[in-house]
Amino acid sequence: MSPQINLEEQFQAKIDAEIKIEPKDWMPDAYRKTLIRQISQHAHSEIVGMLPEGNWLTRAPSLKRKATLLAKVQDEAGHGLYLYSAVETLGISRLQTIEDLLSGKAKYSSIFNYPTLTWADMGAIGWLVDGAAIMNQVPLCRTSYGPYARAMVRVCKEESFHQRQGYEIMMTLMNGSAEQKEMAQDAMNRWWWPAIMMFGPTDSESSNTEQSVKWKIKRHTNDELRQKFIDATVPQAEYIGLTIPDKDLKWNEAKGAYDFGAINWDEFWNVVKGNGPCNKQRLEARQNAHNNGAWVREAASAYAEKRAKRSVTAEVA
């Protein structure tokens, strides 16, 4: 038996025994690459995800809502920070990871390529988008790579708080005027399908699922998570009087879950490929932030160097 095969067997045995893989442990190249791709995509999604909600900070309708939204967007920046750090444990610097986003090489969640048009979108994003993210992320708290799993424990706690806030915004609107109800339903109509597309392509089309499940990076398939999300969300929508924009949605007694209509995968792949309504604007916003901030980062390093030199000189003197 070659030593390589032996290492791979030991690695898989650890995974099977639910022992976490840590940064210094041996891991197959493909495992490392898959994690780098997945965690960096996740980090980028947090950072790009700040933009659609940031769009409403200056227009939030009350001081309380403004503060809550600012805190939420700030949490997302924090999540980005933990996740970039988790990627760094796999040997890629934060700068490199960010450059991959800015050059368009790395992807982020397509949901953030949709525009936020009304205040109700803040409710829909919190409730549906964070809700779908939680479905995806709760199992990641037990993912096989230690630093990722630990980052996700903290992320999930905050996300569930965000989801409740989003639902509460929707509930308040649905208890309000006819115009507010209309605003909430319109947001529901626009965000429902993109939200259920967040689970990714259907299992038969998903190239990454099988290996990722074997490595316990993923613990459920895309379709399983999507079904779980729909089953959890439909009663929440009904409770506040919102209609799900799917005429084929129906409770299926035999399978104990909802049947739902066909997903528009053309739209999904188009947004992934860059043709969503805001792909260009989101990437430009990140590029501008990075480029306009270059002189600040340079100044900070120059100053740190000067200080280090001065303290050495002081010690010598």
Binding site: I47, G54, L57, Q74, G80, L81, A289, G293, V296, R297
Partner: peptide, 15 residues
Amino acid sequence: ICEWCGHGPVLEQDI
């Protein structure tokens, strides 16, 4: 300051 959110020069300073 809200106008800066998501557009800061580096993540730590955005926060």
